[in-house]
Amino acid sequence: MFFLQINNQSGSFNLVLLFGTIGMLVLTIGLIVFIIFHQRKVIRYQLQLQRMEQDQQKMLLNASIRLQEEERQRIAADLHDDAGPLLATARLYLNENLVNLDKTSQLQSIYNAKQIIDDTIQLIRNISHSLMPPTLKNFGLESAVNDLFQKISSSGSMNASCRFHDYRNRMHPEDELIIFRVIQELVNNILKHSNASFIHLTQNLSDDKFFIRMHHDGKGLTQADFEKLNKAASGLGLKNIQSRLKLLHGRIFFEKDMSQTYFKVTIEVPRIEESVGTK
């Protein structure tokens, strides 16, 4: 500091003072301007990130609402087109004129009505099972997935197999339902789009994480395709998978096998809550 003090040299003294003061002011204002602009840049970036996140959430919410509406429409259509006519026909057999008919016709009408009511019961049971599979509720994810894969295999169009390596303790029923729905959606996609000849599902536990891996030999997706479809307006099923897994803090990876022959889908879910009941 003392070397800046210049004695008895008025000209130099003035210059040091003048340029020193101007320099300090320029430095200070420069620093403030830099901080303001830097902060504005950071805040804009943060806001942009927030906006993107909100858009993504909005898209997922829209997808789930649309899917819910589609499901409602499907149930409404099933009830209206199948159960409605069946019950109306049964009503026709059991109209007021029935008392005026002879005994044989009465019995025949009652028998027909009974048949139709049985069909309706079966139909409603099927609708209810498609909403909530009883196997899943009563016996857990492993049985429900086995059941699903057996049904696919028995149709003859595809060879489907599954193996649960480490599922001694059942997960929370709500989590099981979410995972089951994701598997259902993936299997549905494979059946619809991949032309695969087999699907194989394996389940593992590692580092407190629950893994489900599916292999198939058809036309599949890679992670890049998944992300692209996820951002597009279409791809409702994939968005639904994403939003369901988000509830479980889970992740999904699409990749091509090392051998480049199979496509692999991996679902990773942290095992937060342990079993409700052991199998």
Partner: peptide
């Protein structure tokens, strides 16, 4: 934004005052 905070203007005022007078204070004895 930093300039929406009241504290910022106080600090800005202090900085301008001290930066403007810094060399003046150094030389004040002379």
């Amino acid at each position: 934004f930093i300039y929406q905070k009241a504290n910022f203007w106080f600090v800005f005022g202090m900085l301008v005052y001290l930066a403007g007078n810094f060399f003046l204070f150094i030389q004040a004895d002379e």
